[in-house]
């Protein structure tokens, strides 16, 4: 177990070999007037340094709530974490003191949000907001902080950083603002970045620029990256491994190539099939029937069963565990898991 003191830089040299972040059996619920909303129901995932994990899911799948729990920015109440562990470098963040937690947040784990405009303070120049990271966490003086801010803006390739350091957020375009958010997340050289739909609000051509930048910086700093998104295209472009979430559970995990080639869960398969393909022109698109579940009343058994083409009686009665996925001859497929009783059949038809 590391101590508070070695939370600083030197900790990197320590022979800690496990994953950077290990989320174990995380549960998050919201207590609302209408009842308890179980937003996350036993999520497990881990990210190592230099690795990109994509968490894929629709609205209400719990993908963002999980990230907010990791980040420690859930409003509690109404949120509560009744169960689970959030191991960062082997230490459970849920058991840490507020002060320790705060030190990790921002310095060790940083987050990038979808909406850069509302995440930046509109009345302060961006340079000041970037520099504040250094002033607050590193005790830099004003001048150094400003120099650092320019350096950061350069690093995220904002043209004419020196001249623009005094500009306000609204003077930047959407793509540039998202770059500033990235710069801010990078400022303290965190070990892990959580990007929550970082490009959803951006235009396609700008999206590509920002995603490229993020991937490049990640490689440069050897950071872990959790990319939360609903976009199968973005995932295919940058992820190493994928966790697909549905109704607060992970339904499938797989390395990126395998997930697209041979999905082992009917939901993943449905998502992949509903992407319009060239040869389907003029035909009906494959559509997953029904609606995403109401988290107040998650269906019994497998949450996907009412929409699943493969559902059997057992799916309505038992919650399928995230089972290891293997080849027919029993050779395990590394990193693959599926929470479906019929993963074998699904894998075959894929």
């Amino acid at each position: 177990m590391s101590t508070v003191a070695d939370q600083g830089r030197p900790a990197r040299e320590e022979p800690y070999t496990g994953p950077l972040l290990d989320v174990r059996n995380l549960h998050v619920e919201f207590r609302t007037r209408d009842g308890v909303v179980r937003a996350v129901n036993g999520v497990n995932y881990s990210v190592s340094a230099g690795e990109t994990l994509a968490v894929l899911g629709e609205s209400g799948s719990g993908k963002s709530v999980t990230a907010q729990a990791v980040m420690g920015i859930l409003d509690m109440p109404p949120a509560a974490i009744p169960e689970g562990e959030l191991l960062f470098r082997g230490r459970d963040m849920l058991k840490m003191s507020k002060e320790e937690r705060r030190k990790i947040r921002g310095q060790k784990i940083a987050m990038i949000f979808q909406d850069a405009l509302s995440s930046l303070n509109p009345v302060l120049p961006v340079g000041f907001q970037l520099g504040e990271m250094y002033r607050a966490h590193r005790g830099s003086n004003r001048k150094d902080a400003k120099a650092k801010a320019v350096e950061l803006m350069d690093r995220v390739r904002i043209p004419a950083a020196k001249e623009r350091v005094g500009d306000y957020p609204h003077q930047f375009s959407g793509g540039m603002r998202q770059r500033i958010m990235i710069a801010m997340a990078l400022a303290l050289e965190p070990d892990l970045i959580i990007a929550d739909e970082p490009t959803t609000a951006l235009d396609v051509t700008v999206q590509a620029q920002v995603m490229d930048l993020l991937a490049e910086l990640q490689a440069e700093y050897h950071m872990g990256l959790i990319l939360i998104t609903h976009d199968l295209g973005v995932v295919a472009d940058v992820a190493d491994k994928i966790a697909v979430m549905y109704a607060g559970r992970i339904v499938e995990t797989a390395p990126v190539h395998e997930l697209y080639a041979r999905p082992a869960h009917p939901y993943t398969r449905g998502l992949l099939d509903s992407i319009p393909r060239l040869d389907q022109k003029g035909q009906e698109l494959y559509a997953i029937k029904g609606l995403p579940p109401n988290l107040l009343r998650i269906p019994a058994g497998c949450a996907f069963n009412p929409r699943c083409p493969r559902a059997q009686e057992i799916c309505r009665q038992k919650v399928p565990p995230l089972a290891e996925v293997t080849e027919d001859d029993g050779t395990p497929l590394a990193g693959r898991g599926s929470a479906c009783f019929f993963w074998k059949e699904t894998l075959h038809d894929g």
Binding site: F30, T32, V37, A39, S59, G60, G62, S64, V65, Q68, M71, I73, P78, R102, R105, G106, A110, M111, I112, F113, Q114, D115, S118, S119, Q129, E132, M133, A136, M181, M184, A185, D196, E197, L295
Partner: peptide
């Protein structure tokens, strides 16, 4: 600051 009470975009609000 990315680490303080960020306004979470609407569609991220589970409620």
């Amino acid at each position: 600051m990315p680490d303080r009470n960020e306004p979470i975009p609407d569609d991220h609000d589970p409620l």
